[in-house]
Nucleic acid binder design. Structure first.
Length: 572
DNA sequence: AAGCGAGTAGCGGGTCTTGA
DNA sequence: TCAAGACCCGCTACTCGCTT
């Protein structure tokens, strides 16, 4: 049981939590004070916690404890911690029922773990789903660390959690290191191992399960309704064919438009409500519609496509393209929070057609550009090696493009290291490529990285029966000389252990190459480890090029080093 | 404001040659 | 025996205009 001092209101400190779009804002970075800077750091829809203020608060709390000779101690049992799923649902339902506005909900911290709402229950207006799960998250968060939240206040899109000042300072002073470490770690690994995050997931599921999505087709228009469990309409949107593409639109009161936006965004869209002549509009085009990976909605779209075809509004190919688009989903790969578009470029060249990948993001504002570059760099990508970027300036447009293939290799390398974001990005890319029919291309670019360090070269046998050579590979190693890799191959012939080595370099044209002197024996060894039959039986100097690097990269112990070096020097 | 696809300069991979 | 220059031409990175 927790005894809270009954403090007057002016002693409380509020923690301002801005409307959230993710968990990213909760790192220990200083809180940017200008709204402009804040947007640049977190993006317009991301979560932003008043961290600087929080830190000062903790610091003061810690100082105060120390000056009093009190060691801050871990809070003892708190009836709200760990908060149960039912409690968060209870909280949610209290919030769901409460009116938007300055009315507030009180959380009981004394006698019972259940929240008790004091006001605003019966007014019947609902919060957008993307707001109440964040409230639940923060309630859970403060409860987990034993800090009693006295009041939660939601006004428009700003949420505030009120704490008892001293109590919060003391408790957070102790928990801060762990908390910030945890968040930084989670952000890197995307491991939401902490039960806090699991609960958030539960809350999301709860929201998803309790929203019904239905559609009605009227002529060449489909209306999608979002309903609650009781069947009351929460929001709707009309989808129509504007002659060229699908167009989903809603126009009406601001609150309705905002609620629709909240629902669509919770379903994975990225839309905003805009005002035009007093009416608020929500508009989406084909790409954004199919980006919402919600089966009921996509079903409505494909039903509409069928209807349009029947009434001869669209041709057969158009319907096919539309259905494929629905099937394939968005062409966006998220790498370290940066959404990159993947496009296929086909072109005619002398020797036939060529297909290639373009993975590019074109931010318009310099701030969005900086934030994206920073995120990529933090994830381990090197500018100039794995991605190229140009900052947008005045008239000039900027871009960030993931290099093919070196950027993809880096992604694969991170994936092998078990970095979750890379794992997801690679599988998303493959999934998308399969759905859009260019998997062969993606596979081709990823193959060198996927094959890296998969083969143990030891005990491989190099044979050239024509010239009577038989050698057994003992080891393949890489040594560095002035930043250049020297590959050493140890092999055994008739019981003698011999070795040969060659150094890789870059010529003026920018190509990688290595020269190696051969005799029958060495040629056999080389043609085996590089899988290049042409080298067999060759005498004199053989020039090794990029394809030989890829062959060598398959061997354990040398692969990543060689591939990394190759990617670096290839992109000077 | 961002996405998409087409156009294009020039970089870099491959190969042959030359130099030490 | 190893390293590096020369040169060709396909392909990539970047640009641009139009679309969403």
């Amino acid at each position: 049981m927790l005894n809270l001092p009954n403090r007057p209101y002016h002693n409380r400190r509020d923690l301002v939590v801005h409307r959230a779009g993710g968990l990213h804002g909760l790192s220990a970075q200083p809180y940017p004070h200008s709204a402009h800077h804040r947007q640049a750091l977190y993006g317009p829809k991301q979560l932003c916690v008043h961290v600087g203020r929080l830190q000062r608060l903790f610091h003061r709390g810690r100082q105060r404890c120390l000056s009093r000779g009190v060691t801050p101690r871990r809070p003892q049992h708190n009836p709200l911690s760990p908060i149960g799923a039912s409690t968060s649902y209870g909280l949610l339902s209290a919030f769901l029922r409460r009116r938007r506005g300055p009315a507030c909900c009180w959380l009981s911290c004394r006698d019972e773990p259940r929240p008790r709402r004091l006001r605003g229950e019966e007014r019947g207006e609902k919060l957008p789903p993307d707001v109440h799960d964040k409230i639940a998250l923060y309630t859970i968060m403060v409860a987990k660390y034993g800090i009693a939240a006295e009041k939660v206040n939601v006004v428009e899109d700003k949420m505030r959690i009120f704490f008892s000042r001293e109590y919060a300072a003391e408790a957070f002073a102790e928990a801060w290191d762990e908390l910030s470490w945890l968040w930084r770690f989670d952000r890197k690994q995307e491991l939401y191992a902490d039960h806090l995050f699991k609960k958030l997931q539960h809350v999301r599921e709860y929201v998803e399960k309790h929203m019904r999505i239905e559609h009605v087709i009227r002529g060449a228009k489909a209306t999608v309704y979002f309903k609650d469990v009781a069947g009351n309409e929460i929001a709707h949107i009309n989808i129509s064919w504007d002659g060229k593409s699908l167009h989903a639109a809603f126009g009406g009161a601001r609150k309705k438009a905002e609620r629709l936006v909240a629902i669509l965004n919770a379903l994975g869209a990225d839309v905003e409500a805009r005002e035009h002549g007093g009416t608020w509009y929500v508009q989406l085009y084909t790409g954004s519609i199919t980006a919402i990976r919600c089966p009921e909605l996509l079903e409505a779209v494909s039903a509409l496509a069928g209807e349009l075809y029947k009434s001869k509004k669209i041709a057969k190919e158009q319907r096919g393209r539309l259905l494929r688009e629905i099937e394939a989903g968005p062409n966006v790969v998220e790498v370290a929070g940066v959404e990159l578009n993947v496009n296929l470029k086909e072109e005619e060249i002398k020797s036939g057609a060529s297909k290639r990948l373009m993975i590019i993001y074109e931010p318009t504002s310099p701030e969005a550009f900086d934030a994206a570059v920073k995120a990529l760099k933090e994830a381990g990508f090197v500018e100039g090696v794995h991605f190229t970027a140009k900052k947008p300036e005045k008239e000039e447009r900027g871009f960030i493009s993931l290099k093919v293939p070196s950027g993809l290799w880096k992604l694969e390398e991170l994936r092998r290291q078990g970095v979750k974001l890379a794992e997801r990005a690679v599988s998303r890319l493959e999934e998308m490529a399969k759905a859009r029919g260019f998997y062969d291309l993606v596979e081709e670019h990823l193959r060198p990285a996927k094959e890296v360090e998969t083969i143990d070269p030891r005990e491989m046998v190099a044979e050239d029966p024509e010239r009577g050579v038989k050698a057994v590979i003992r080891d393949v190693k890489v040594e560095w000389e002035n930043g250049r890799p020297r590959v050493e191959v140890e092999y055994e012939v008739n019981g003698d252990v011999k070795s040969l080595s060659f150094i890789w370099g870059v010529d003026k044209g920018g190509a990688v190459r290595a020269g190696v002197g051969l005799n029958n024996e060495k040629a056999a060894v080389f043609s085996t480890i590089t899988c290049d039959e042409k080298l067999k039986g060759k005498k004199g100097v053989a020039t090794l090029t990029a394809k030989h690097i890829f062959a060598l990269a398959k061997y354990k112990g040398v692969g990543w080093q060689l591939l990394r070096w190759y990617a670096e020097v290839m992109n000077m």
